[in-house]
Design a protein around this nucleic acid. Structure first.
Length: 352
DNA sequence: TCTGGGGTCCTAGGACCC
DNA sequence: TCTGGGGTCCTAGGACCC
């Protein structure tokens, strides 16, 4: 029995992160694959070009395979790996079972994608709550999760990363500086490779550097919102409100990377029409109307361009959306081979 | 490692208007 | 007439995240 210093009863944010979620769901469906190198992605055909791994089991990772790697490369690295097609409905179903388990606790649950949730709770023992959540999820779904504990979502999110796999970690304003100050700026949730490099060029290499930086100088370099926000992140601050009402999507999109380039205008137009009709169908199913249509074209080798236009009237009419998308397509210079086409829409938002 | 798909939010610049 | 300044809308692109 370990003893912890007791905490006062107060509000905490927990971040629950399912470990290796997609791979774990696939292993549950195919128990005979446990302990084997498994790669999930695309239609599961590793010879298909321009398809990448959604995830890889630890056994596959030992061969240097990781998510985002082309399946053809993964096959070369591990010819014995088992390749499975991605099955989003199965992951959605598993995710809903997990979220239902979390909601049985006396907490507030904010779903954050398939494999994550933020929990708002009032307790004097957040570690005990975290362990209870882990036990319940494991008992009811056979899935393992890591739990981060923080004063806000940013801290809790980073803490769950430190807790992996299957652990519990507390990162609050009390130990923030001790744990985070020496780390590179891209350890923060919201600062990636590009911004980290730009910060380094300003002499800001660590979280401590960024926390001590001049907000006005950051605003000059990164804009009035982003610049000060980065410093705010470095100080360990972040959103602390858990929203339990379902998220209302801002928009929706469908895109396709073709295994081989398209050059024929008629064929390109046919694909854009189909994508637009698909998006229109999705919008109608969701009971939403569209206010803006965007078309995305990725040319060979990897040059991406977008064009968009606002509709005069919101609609989910497939003919209007398809006609609009095809008209937008005409604004592209289509002399180069095309490897990807996409159609995206912005929805009208309900009045607040 | 020739590089998926689906999202969100921010920024910059041009058009247009007063 | 060689030339303002602010506000708003729209578009294109970028960065980040899962």
């Amino acid at each position: 029995m370990t003893t912890r210093p007791s905490s006062p009863t107060r509000d905490w944010i927990l971040h629950v992160d399912l470990d290796q979620f997609i791979a774990a769901v696939e292993i549950l469906r195919h128990p005979e694959l446990r302990g084997k190198p498994v790669v999930v992605g695309g239609s599961g055909d590793p010879t298909q070009p321009r398809t990448v791994a959604a995830t890889a089991t630890y056994e596959a990772r030992e061969h240097g395979i990781h998510s985002g790697m082309p399946l053809r490369t993964a096959l070369k690295r591990c010819p014995d790996a088992i390749f499975l097609p991605s099955d989003p409905p199965a992951y959605e179903a598993a995710s809903e079972r997990v979220m239902a388990v979390l909601r049985e606790f006396p907490v507030r649950v904010e779903v954050w994608g398939w494999d994550e949730a933020f929990i708002g709770a009032t307790t004097d023992d957040p570690e005990a709550l975290a362990a209870g959540l882990q036990d319940a999820v494991r008992a009811r779904t056979d899935l393992s999760c890591s739990v981060g504990i923080g004063d806000n979502k940013h801290q809790a999110k980073l803490a769950s990363g430190f807790a992996k796999p299957a652990g519990i970690y507390r990162l609050t304003s009390d130990n923030w500086a001790e744990i985070m100050n020496a780390r590179p700026t891209d350890a923060l949730w919201g600062i990636g490779a590009k911004t980290s490099k730009k910060l380094a060029a300003l002499g800001l290499h660590t979280v401590a550097d960024l926390a001590a930086a001049d907000p006005a100088a950051l605003a000059g370099a990164f804009g009035p919102t982003n610049g000060p926000w980065y410093r705010y992140l470095a100080l360990g601050k972040g959103e602390a409100e858990v929203v339990t009402t379902p998220w209302i999507a801002r928009g929706h999109s469908r895109e396709t990377t073709f295994p081989h380039d398209l050059t024929d205008k008629t064929e390109i137009t046919r694909h854009v029409t189909a994508l637009a009709e698909h998006v229109a169908h999705d919008a109608a199913t969701a009971g939403r109307e569209v206010i803006r249509v965007s078309v995305k074209v990725r040319f060979t080798p990897f040059l991406t361009r977008t064009r968009q236009s606002k509709l005069p009237t919101p609609t989910a009419d497939p003919d209007i959306l398809a006609r609009t998308a095809v008209a937008i397509l005409d604004r592209f210079d289509l002399t180069r081979p095309v490897r990807l086409l996409g159609v995206a829409v912005d929805y009208t938002m309900p009045d607040k």
